[in-house]
Design a protein around this nucleic acid. Structure first.
Lengths: 335, 335
DNA sequence: CTGAAAGCGCTTACAG
DNA sequence: CTGAAAGCGCTTACAG
């Protein structure tokens, strides 16, 4: 591999000039620039990024860590981040944490080791290795949460209004005459699961005849299947089930089939997220759309402002959600 | 951020010793080592990877580029690669090419610019910027294909036996009495689509009463839906449809619903890949399982051998597939 | 518009 | 077991 020195020698200029041709071409005389460009092409020169990074302390990379790349919901978010990032000349390093704190830390370490300029984390957590840095300096970090507000108010975050979104689903079900509603949540610890459950109960305050039974899932198809079976086998089973992810709703559909139940005739079902598959399920799934691509754009924009030193006081951004009523919800069966 | 020099000064040793504590601890006297370790911890020292990479010309990273991270099929593959990679001390950089050659090139450039040691490409293509290097030196590159054999025999690749896998599906359908079978392929240009279609026709040679009509899709749910509708609306519609991806099969199921057809009573359906959703579709989907995680393991192993200079003549590896007969295929309806 | 020179933070033969 | 020193390939004030 040829270096900037080789190019300089061949083109009869200094390495500084070659460097300028790449980073500030207008500072170089046109003839010189053309000669250098031709030489670079002839030698097949490719800059060594490690050297550049060492010198500038900038990588033009961000890492985005998601809990489960297998989930199209995460993938859509990544797409959004990547779109905004590549438009700004940044590359995206993708991390799959599998809901594992250790793996999250590993990706966060990439920014400490200067392998990336910043970290975008889909979720509400703050990796330890970044938290320490935060405490030391007291100033914000190149770090942002999506789909979950951090408990630390200094850390910027973007999400939807989970509380009201969940409330809307319950209202939708209640309007259809459902009285007994089963909720399958994600892990309770997650603030957005808590927010959604709070939303559910906020409706119950105004409609005291609602009976809500909440069980805890883990967002996976299989947990949706298992928990639904439990709800169906309880003494007084719900007439509608609200899963806090579309994947769990997919499991619920499988459970209905296993019990010979027809949706929505015998039981209604709502999901959350509006992944690409939701509209193709049988029946098409009623769910809440989270604007994941926009969330990706927004999150990158905020991180980028920070990285470029653009002053900004933005800390919390809430994006619009949308209840999408499809065929999986219908009138409650007559008792 | 403290550097190796700071640690050396504080610990009263040279930077060479600090370096050895990290990379070859057994070469350092125990007392010295302990002192250095304590100092590193006290200063919160984190090595600067850019400097290390510049010096060693190794990144301990591989980039894996997939056509569509949104597809769980790709995600499973990534999981496999990542498992093998992290066991070997490598990090994975993930690239989503969206079936776009330009984006593929961009990720391939990362290895030319020394941002990664090698490239794993899910698909059969060879990025131009790597092809040139190959031509120059004549020796193999840190590059490997998965799910598609490269036309260039020097480039290693791992896949399943697409030809026989597709043949097995057709035989399964023919055994169920189906005579008119519709095929929805991926883009025809892809070698693995061609291989599968060849497999389909190989069965036809032995069973001349089979009528095969093949149309071209793009692996997306929506193309599965559209193409299925076309097949259903043709003068003499097939009694079974074989989609060359499970996502397209999902679209086919939506098309059946749109036309009021019950699967498998009125029409049978088979997919390809066995993504996680396949078993939860309604009805559960008959499909061909590709062992994507194992493929990821295998691919990384081969690349790693190359990277570490381990001599190996492995060029083509074929992994076992499996026909998974579920409920979406049944006897052909009586004419 | 261009060049000489310092320096980013590591690693690694080499010598002792 | 340890250190002095060179060097990986860039960029950037500084000077002209």
């Amino acid at each position: 591999m040829s270096t900037i020195i080789d190019v300089a020698r061949e083109a009869g200029v200094s390495s500084a000039t070659v460097s300028r041709v790449m980073s500030a071409p207008h500072q170089v005389a046109e003839g010189t620039r053309a000669r250098v460009l031709a030489t670079m092409a002839r030698l097949g020169y490719t800059p060594n990024i490690a050297a550049k990074t060492l010198r500038t302390l900038r990588t033009d990379k961000v890492v985005v860590a998601v809990p489960d790349i297998t989930n199209p919901f995460c993938a859509q978010f990544i797409r959004g981040v990547e779109e905004a990032a590549s438009a700004a000349g940044y590359a995206v390093l993708l991390g799959d944490t599998r809901y594992d704190k250790n793996r999250e830390e590993q990706y966060a370490m990439m920014v400490r080791r200067r392998e990336a300029d910043g970290l975008i984390l889909l979720g509400h957590g703050t990796p330890t290795c970044l938290r320490e840095v935060l405490d030391d300096s007291g100033r914000p970090l190149p770090f942002i949460n999506a789909c979950g507000f951090s408990p630390d108010p200094r850390i910027p975050a973007v999400q939807i209004d989970n509380l009201h979104a969940a409330a809307e689903v319950i209202e939708h079900l209640a309007d259809l005459g459902h009285k007994r509603i089963g909720i399958i949540s994600g892990p309770r610890a997650a603030p957005n699961s808590k927010d959604r459950i709070t939303g559910v109960h906020s409706v119950q305050l105004e409609r005291p005849d609602l009976e809500i039974s909440a069980v805890e899932g883990d967002f996976s198809i299989n947990s949706g299947l298992r928990r639904t079976l439990e709800l169906l086998d309880s003494p007084n089973p719900p007439t509608a089930i609200f899963c806090l992810s579309d994947e769990m709703a997919m499991g619920a559909l499988a459970a209905f089939r296993e019990r010979g139940l027809t949706c929505p005739r015998d039981i209604s079902l709502a999901g959350f997220d509006d992944i690409a598959y939701a509209q193709y399920m049988n029946p098409p799934l009623t769910t809440v759309r989270q604007p994941m691509e926009s969330m990706g754009h927004e999150v990158f924009r905020i991180l980028h402002d920070f990285l470029t030193g653009t002053p900004s006081l933005v800390r919390r951004v809430t994006l619009a959600h949308q209840l999408i009523a499809r065929e999986s919800t219908g009138p409650a069966p007559k008792a």
